[in-house]
Design a protein around this nucleic acid. Structure first.
Length: 92
DNA sequence: ACGGTGACTCGCA
DNA sequence: GTGCGAGCCACCG
């Protein structure tokens, strides 16, 4: 699983994940899969945000809060609902 | 089997 | 920054 390769403290966009998965424009698949994943999943789905660096969930969504909180725990800087998408070089 | 929908992204105006 | 249209693929009724 591509998501499993996401290091701690790093956020990736759906597009990034999709591309790494071999589906350059299938960002939707990533999101859809995440939603289908069991809550007991081992995948760091909370490290996945949209191209805007924003969590693609409703602020009133329980998952949203969890994701946000977890990201901060991992050391990811969050500005409101926006994460710092630094120029992180993805395993060059 | 078929069509609609969606935790999205990109290019263009 | 904001809006529109097109592309992607899997799940659900």
């Amino acid at each position: 699983m591509v998501l499993a390769a996401v290091p701690s403290g790093t956020v990736v966009t759906y597009g990034q994940v999709a591309e790494l998965a071999g589906l350059p424009r299938a960002a939707r698949m990533v999101g859809r899969i995440l939603g289908k994943l069991p809550k007991a999943t081992q995948l760091p789905w909370h490290r996945v945000v949209n191209a805007a660096g924003k969590i693609s969930l409703a602020e009133d969504s329980p998952s949203f809060k969890v994701q946000k909180a977890r990201l901060q725990e991992e050391g990811v800087v969050l500005n409101k609902n926006r994460v710092s998408l630094k120029k992180f070089n993805w395993q060059p």
